[in-house]
Design a protein around this nucleic acid. Structure first.
Lengths: 348, 348
DNA sequence: AAAACCTACTTGTCCGGTTCAGGAGAATAG
DNA sequence: CTATTCTCCTGAACCGGACAAGTAGGTTTT
C-alpha cells in the first residue's frame, strides 16, 4: 500500500510529545515554544524549533481545532448545473483572488461543486458547520428568496454574501451598483446612436440579473430609449436561440447586451452564420469580461471588473468576520467599460 | 431550523456528551448507537438517534480524525499562472467529476490555487499531510522531472497521478495513450488531403505535451507527411503570435492542430483578421474539447474526452488507495474526434 | 444450583494539541 | 536576611469523539 512506500517513508508523523520526550521537557513547554508564547527560555525555544524542523513536525489541524482553535478552512459551494460554462470564466479568477488572501492568512478552501439544488447547498453548510469543518463560508450567486441566508444565520455560521444588501439580514455583503453599471453600458450605446437595444439577461432568479434588467430599463428611459430584456439560461445554445429570435424581428435591435461573455460569443457566432457584419450591422456588449472577449475577432466590448480583487475582498471580509470584525456592507467598485471591436454606430 | 434555538445564533453545537447527559446514559453508549455498532438496545439506539437529530448533532470531524479516523478530505493543487485560461475549460468539468465521486463517498475537496511555483506545491502537500488535513491528493499537470512525485512518495502521502506511467514510481496513475490520440487527429487531416500540417503544442515541460508532439511526428511519418510542432504558452496572445508566424511562411500549413480550445479560438481569430477562410483555406483542430469549440462559428473540430469521467476516475482511484486498495496503472479511454466545421480538404 | 454466556450497558484511556494552575530556583526589593 | 517577584518550567484538565475492557443483570446450559 502507499503508506510508507519508500524506504524512508515516515508513516507516523512527529507529535509534540515526541519533541518533549527527546528534549526531556514537558509538552506544555514545547507548545509555548512552538507558538511563540512566553514561558520558555530562548535557548529552549530554539532547541524545540530546531528539533521540530528536523522531525518535520506540523501541528495536527484536528487536535488544534479540537482544542478550541479555528479550523483554518473556509467553505465555498458552487451550485449551478455543471454544464453551464459561464461559471468558469468568472469562477477561476474569483477563486484565484480568494485563494491568495486565504494563503496569506493561513487558511484553505473547502470546495463543493453541486448541481443546482438549493437544499443540497443548505445541507452542505449544515454539515460543514456541524462537523466543524469550516470557520465560515462565502455565498455566491444570490437568488431571490434565498434559503441560504436564513440557513446560515440560523446556524450561526459566519458567512459573507456576494450580493445584497438584503434588508432583514445582518450578513456582511459585497454589493454592486448594477444601476451604475447599466448606465455605463446604455450610455455608451446611446452615445453611438443606437435606439433599438436588446438586453439578453440570465435567469431572473438571480438577484443581480433582475437588478441589471431594472438598470438598463431606467438608463434607457432616462435617455428616451427603450431597452427590451429577454431572459435566457447562461448557455451558448440558449443565447443562440434568443439572438436568432431577436434578429428575426421586423425591426431587429442594432445593439445587443449579453449577460455574459459566453452568451456574447454565441451571439457573434449567430451573426457570423447569418452574414451579419459586426460591428457595422450589429453592436454587441458583454456584461462580463474575461479572457474570452479578446480571444475572438473582433474583440468584444465588455464591462470589466477586477474579479480576482472581488474574490480577495470576499475572502478578507469573511476572515475578518471569523476573527470577530464585522465589516458590514461593502460596495464593490463600479465596473468600467472596455470598448473593443464589437460596438460602433448603427448602420443608418 | 435544525438547531433548537432559532432566536439567537447557537454558538455551541451539540456533542455526544450532551446527548448522553440528556438521556442519562454514557458517552460510549451514544457512540455505539450513532455509529450503528452493537452494544445498545434498539430502544436506546432510537432515542439517541432521535435526540441527535433534534439537536442537529454532527460528529466533529476534528475529534473523529484525532481518534484515528480519516479526515474525509482530499486535496488538489492547481499550479498554473492564474492568467492562463486553459485551466478553466478543462478544470471545471474535471472538478465536477471529482466532486461527484467525493460526495457519493462522503469526502470533500480541499483546493489550492497557486501560481506556477513547484516548491509551493510540494510545500503544500507537506503541510496538508503534516497537519493531517487530507487523506490523499490528486496530482494534475504532470511535468518532466516532477518533484512532486518523490515528494509525496517520501511523505507517504497517498496520491494518484493524472498522467504517467512513471518508471520508478509506484503511484497509481491514470495514463493516456497520446500516440493513439495523435494518430486520430493526423489520420483525419491526412485523409482529407492535408500534407502540410502544423502542431501548436503547449509548453514542453508538460509530459503530455511532449508525448503528443512525439505522437504527431510518428503518425505523420507513418503516412509520409511531416508534422511541424511549435511550442507556445497556453495563452491567446501566444497562440495568435505563433499562428501569424505559421501563416507568414512561404508555404504555410493547410491545417493547424492546437493544443487547446483557447489556442484554437485564437487561431480562428487570426484567420478572421486576415480574411483566411475556414475551413476552405485552413483547417483547425483543437486537442481539447470544451463548450468553447461549439460556441464559435464555424464550430471547431476537436478531440473529445469525457473530462468529468476522468475526474471521477481520479477521485475513485484515490479514495480506493486511501482505503488500502491500490488500483495501479489505469489507462484512460482513448479520445474520439468530433469533426465539426473547421476541417475540410485543403484548397488545391 | 452453580457455571457459563448473553445483552446492555459503564468506565476509562487515547488521539495531539492548548491552557490553566501551580512550583522551584534565581534575582530583586525592603 | 527574609519577602517578593520574576523567569522557566511541570502536571493535569480539557476539547469530542472511538474503542478496549470491565460489569451488572438476566438467561441458558449442565
Amino acid at each position: 500500500m502507499a503508506k510508507g512506500s519508500s524506504s524512508a517513508g515516515p508513516v507516523t508523523r512527529a507529535t509534540m510529545a515526541d519533541i518533549a520526550r527527546r528534549l526531556d521537557i514537558s509538552k506544555a513547554a514545547v507548545s509555548y515554544a512552538l507558538n511563540g508564547q512566553p514561558g520558555v527560555s530562548s535557548a529552549t525555544r530554539e532547541k524545540v524549533l530546531d528539533l521540530a524542523k528536523d522531525l518535520g513536525w506540523y501541528a495536527s489541524s484536528s487536535a488544534r481545532a479540537l482544542a478550541g482553535a479555528e479550523t483554518g478552512v473556509i467553505g465555498l459551494v458552487l451550485a449551478r448545473p455543471s454544464d453551464l460554462p459561464t461559471i468558469e470564466t468568472f469562477f477561476i479568477p474569483f477563486l484565484t483572488g480568494v485563494e491568495q488572501v486565504l494563503t496569506e492568512r493561513g487558511s484553505s478552501l473547502l470546495l463543493r461543486v453541486i448541481g443546482e439544488h438549493p437544499e443540497a447547498e443548505t445541507k452542505t453548510y449544515e454539515r460543514w458547520w456541524g462537523e466543524r469543518r469550516v470557520d465560515g463560508v462565502i455565498l455566491v450567486d444570490e437568488r431571490y428568496h434565498d434559503m441560504r441566508l436564513p440557513a446560515v444565520e440560523g446556524l450561526g455560521l459566519p458567512a459573507v454574501l456576494c450580493g445584497g444588501p438584503i434588508k432583514g439580514s445582518a450578513l456582511p455583503c459585497l454589493w454592486t451598483d448594477h444601476g451604475a453599471d447599466a448606465r455605463i453600458v446604455v450610455d455608451h450605446l446611446v452615445a453611438l446612436g443606437h435606439t433599438r437595444i436588446a438586453h439578453v439577461s440570465g435567469p431572473a432568479g438571480f438577484v443581480f440579473e433582475r437588478a441589471r434588467r431594472r438598470g438598463v430599463r431606467r438608463a434607457g428611459a432616462a435617455l428616451g430609449v427603450t431597452v427590451e430584456t429577454i431572459e435566457a439560461e447562461y448557455t451558448g445554445p440558449q443565447a443562440t436561440e434568443v439572438t436568432q429570435r431577436l434578429l428575426d424581428q421586423p425591426e431587429p435591435p442594432t445593439a445587443i447586451v449579453y449577460a455574459s461573455d459566453v452568451m456574447a460569443l454565441a451571439g457573434l457566432a449567430v451573426a457570423a452564420t447569418r452574414g451579419v457584419s459586426i460591428p457595422a450591422q450589429l453592436s454587441v456588449v458583454s456584461w462580463d469580461d474575461s479572457y474570452l472577449t479578446t480571444l475572438v475577432h473582433p474583440a468584444v466590448t465588455a464591462l470589466f471588473r477586477d474579479t480576482p480583487a472581488y474574490g480577495a475582498l470576499a475572502a478578507s471580509v469573511l476572515l475578518d468576520l471569523v476573527d470577530g470584525r464585522d465589516r458590514g456592507r461593502i460596495q464593490v467598485p463600479t465596473s468600467s467599460l472596455r470598448v473593443r471591436g464589437t460596438t460602433a454606430p448603427p448602420a443608418k
